[in-house]
């Protein structure tokens, strides 16, 4: 049973194909997820719309509100872009740990969001950056916070005729610290046991604003509300790092046992990793961890 494939050459063609009546179409971007799903038979779409050649979905632009990243931006492109590097080092760090170079060359920002796997590495980074996703259909465009967009296990707020067009990463506040850590089953080319992304703004010695998110420790990319509450308005002492991380591991995450790790280990390691990460002067490694 081979699906019907539409190769869209422009945004209009893609939106027209998605708006067609009948069975909902699957969107194919880099294919790192869908091609595997097709082969295993877990997904059996009747229609596929291939958007890989849609130029309007590519590229990085600076806008007043921040940096706009096209949905087809690949991990490899994001890794090479100096604007992304200075603006969202958190995202670059996450991109660096996605798969191998071959996967990085195909895996896209839009694909990560659209698939909405709880183990997706880029999504916690986007949530911590306060990013907003722009959805477009023939009916028009709308913007949704990534945090809300990822609404369940492999579920999003995307309507069947909508396409993920771009992502806006708001301008980085001065002195914002961005922290990222992935724990995999090995140091590269692994699906994460857990990921954690944190953006911290300061006023003087005190934390003034926090956004934090985690992957692979719940059914969706999780916002770490307890951690955020515990940290805001306080100086980031080692004791606070430990207690806030412990509270967060108790309240914010719901890990399970699976082939990659156990719930017990994930909860334990999550608290330790988060505490260590918060205490680091710069939580984003400058080069791949060795």
């Amino acid at each position: 049973m081979t699906p019907e494939v539409t190769v869209a050459r422009s945004l209009d063609e893609a939106l027209a194909a998605l708006a067609r009546d009948g069975a909902a179409a699957h969107v194919l971007a880099g294919g790192t997820d869908l091609m595997v799903e097709l082969r295993t038979g877990r997904t059996r779409p009747e229609r596929v719309v291939d958007v890989w050649k849609v130029g309007e979905l590519r590229g990085v632009r600076e806008e007043n509100e921040g940096l706009r990243l096209g949905a087809l931006s690949t991990c490899a492109e994001l890794l090479r872009d100096s604007r992304v590097a200075s603006h969202a080092p958190l995202l670059v760090a996450a991109c660096r740990e996605v798969g191998a170079e071959q996967i990085q060359a195909r895996a896209t920002l839009g694909g990560n969001l659209g698939t909405a796997s709880p183990a997706a590495d880029l999504n916690p980074a986007l949530v911590a950056l306060g990013a907003r996703v722009r959805l477009r259909s023939r009916r028009g465009a709308r913007e949704v916070a990534v945090d809300e967009f990822l609404c369940g296990y492999r579920k999003t707020l995307r309507e069947r005729d909508e396409l993920i067009e771009s992502v806006l990463v708001p301008t980085r506040p001065a002195h914002e610290r961005q922290l990222w850590r992935k724990v995999g089953t090995r140091r590269a080319q692994s699906i994460s046991k857990l990921t954690v992304a944190v953006a911290l703004a300061f006023e003087g010695a005190c934390v003034s604003a926090v956004r934090a998110a985690a992957g692979s420790v719940g059914p969706r990319t999780l916002r770490l509300a307890t951690l955020e509450r515990e940290l805001v308005g306080r100086p980031l002492s080692p004791a606070l790092c430990r207690s806030a991380a412990a509270a967060c591991a108790r309240a914010d995450i719901t890990p399970i046992d699976d082939v990659r790790s156990t719930a017990l280990y994930r909860r334990h390691a999550f608290a330790r990793v988060l505490a260590t990460l918060l205490a680091e002067p710069d939580g984003v490694p400058a080069c791949p961890p060795s």
Partner: peptide, 28 residues
Amino acid sequence: LFEEHDVNRFGLHRGPSLLDYRLPTSLD
């Protein structure tokens, strides 16, 4: 440290792929 060839409670292989059967990478 990494590799484990095992089956689940039905006798089904727990991860018959190079993603889940973890060979160390050069970084490891």
